[in-house]
């Protein structure tokens, strides 16, 4: 539908064209995936464990280049970007990793503030915002705690705060509610929805928590055998 028209990709926050991925010499994990995410959209990604959800997200947050095909973000193809341009693009993406990936020697506050520090912002400028964000995710009293002193759920919320702290254009969350109780899970989900509605952040959430998906009025994509299919069962307001 957009053959030969480079301007078309401006309409998408994320666009995959015939993307395939294989690790080393293994089987293809993802095969010929096409995907368009409009700016300000909210999408859920589901599929059984090992289906390749994390792998697909890695392509989106620029941790890996695809083996074949093309990944475009914010209206730009990524494969011919310079390293610095890629770094700039990564700053517009907030990621909640499945395994959190907090830095163990930093406090909760410092972990949450990391993207701002990387972007060269001054601590005195961002401190109040970061503290408020951490209070919002219920960690106001744990600012100086290190990850090892936090429960799994608390660590997850630090990871979420870190992903949100620089008000990203694209938020990618990999099983973001996997380690919290259902109540906190729902609260976090509402947080993502609010972010999406208020700031227009494009959100992509991978989860296999079906109850959670049912509560969200959002298109659901399912990964199966390396292929991406629209899930009719939960597809609320298909775009």
């Amino acid at each position: 539908m957009s053959i030969g028209n480079p301007d078309m990709i401006l309409d998408f926050a994320v666009r995959l064209d015939g993307v395939s991925l294989r690790y080393d010499s293994s089987e293809e994990i993802l095969s010929g995936i096409d995907l368009n995410l409009k700016p300000g959209s909210f999408t859920c990604l589901t599929g059984p464990s090992g289906a390749g959800k994390t792998s697909l997200l890695k392509l989106l947050y620029l941790a890996l280049p695809p083996t074949r095909g093309e990944v475009s973000l914010f209206g730009r193809r990524t494969h011919d970007l310079s390293r610095n341009a890629l770094s700039n693009m990564r700053r517009r993406i907030g990621v909640v990793f499945q395994e959190f990936r907090l830095l163990n020697h930093l406090t909760a506050y410092e972990n949450a503030a990391l993207p701002l520090r990387v972007a060269g912002q001054k601590e005195m400028d961002y401190r109040p915002d970061v503290e408020e964000l951490l209070r919002w995710v219920g960690l106001g009293g744990r600012l100086d705690a290190r990850p090892e002193q936090l429960s799994g759920g608390e660590q997850q919320r630090v990871a979420i705060a870190r992903a949100l702290v620089n008000k990203p254009d694209l938020l990618i969350a990999d099983e973001p509610t996997g380690n919290v109780d259902p109540e906190m899970g729902e609260r976090l989900m509402r947080l993502f929805i609010e972010l999406n509605r208020r700031l227009g952040t494009t959100v992509m959430i991978a989860t296999h928590d079906l109850t959670l998906i049912r509560k969200v009025e959002a298109p659901v994509l399912r990964l199966q055998h390396g292929l991406l299919v629209r899930d009719v069962e939960f597809g609320g307001n298909a775009a």
Binding site: R90, R92, I93, L103, V118
Partner: peptide
Amino acid sequence: DIVDVLHLSGATDRF
């Protein structure tokens, strides 16, 4: 681990 997180947070090679 640290380098990867910094890299994915948008840190440049120089940083």
